[in-house]
Design a protein around this nucleic acid. Structure first.
Lengths: 137, 137
DNA sequence: CAGCATCCTTTGGGATACTG
DNA sequence: CAGTATCCCAAAGGATGCTG
């Protein structure tokens, strides 16, 4: 019997689709860049290496958990290096790799686009909201 | 008493921080672009207007809910227009606005960066995983 | 055909406390 | 000081069924 066929095939299709998306370079990069803290950490490190604590202070607002988590990901992706010095008290420095530096221009490009177009977006939003949320009566 | 002071002030700081982030043009744009479906919908519409159903088929893998939700956001942000024709059966066309077309170069830039650098990222990941997950015995 | 509304599962993120 | 582990909540996302 093929009763479970329809729903199941859709599910499969979706998985494959998501897998394709995940493997698409463009999406990988977007996913990485758009992470709430990645941009901030990378910017913070743009001027030179920082210790964990310094980073925590610079990127105020980030949980310690998020900080470590994000740094691990960045390290894994080869965007930052993690250097441990001594054991007690431990000292850990984070520094941007060449690859890490390479994303700065891209970030700047996005920022530039944003700054030149964001006004239009905001204007559009106001128009939309005015048209849709205001009482009709 | 100021017992609740510490935790509460941290909370407040965090909120303000997030608010600042949300208002930062760069992050707004990143948040918009990095949405799982935005890229796909925008690309799909790059060649010309499409009906809801056509879009659903083109961007296979997207839930109907996600599709509509994303389209509403794009409409609100002034990136697409939504045109309703007739009432029964309804026909709705979605088309990229000028502003919508303007993000195509940016998407291409990201894609280009991704394609030239993704190999290094993947290599870094393999190195990292090899170093950290393999049994040390 | 287009698109709400509802329900339910999964995930992400935050607070807290503990270890080398 | 740097990092891990645990708990917990809010939000995102998906499936389904109903309406103009």
């Amino acid at each position: 019997m093929t009763t479970a066929g329809a729903a199941q095939r859709r599910e499969t299709t979706r998985r494959e689709y998501n897998a394709n998306l995940a493997e698409c370079p463009g999406h990988e990069v977007l996913a990485a860049l758009s992470d709430k803290w990645v941009t901030l950490i990378v910017s913070a490190l743009a001027d030179g290496p920082l210790r964990h604590g310094e980073l925590a202070r610079t990127v105020a607002g980030a949980t310690q958990k998020m900080l470590t988590q994000t740094l691990r990901r960045l390290e894994r992706d080869g965007l930052v290096t993690r250097t441990v010095t001594g054991t007690v008290p431990p000292r850990v420095d984070y520094e941007l790799t060449d690859l890490g530096h390479d994303i700065l221009p891209l970030q700047r490009a996005i920022k530039a686009w944003a700054e030149t177009h964001i006004d239009r977006v905001h204007a559009a939003r106001e128009r939309y909201d005015g048209r849709h949320q205001e009482p009709r009566c």
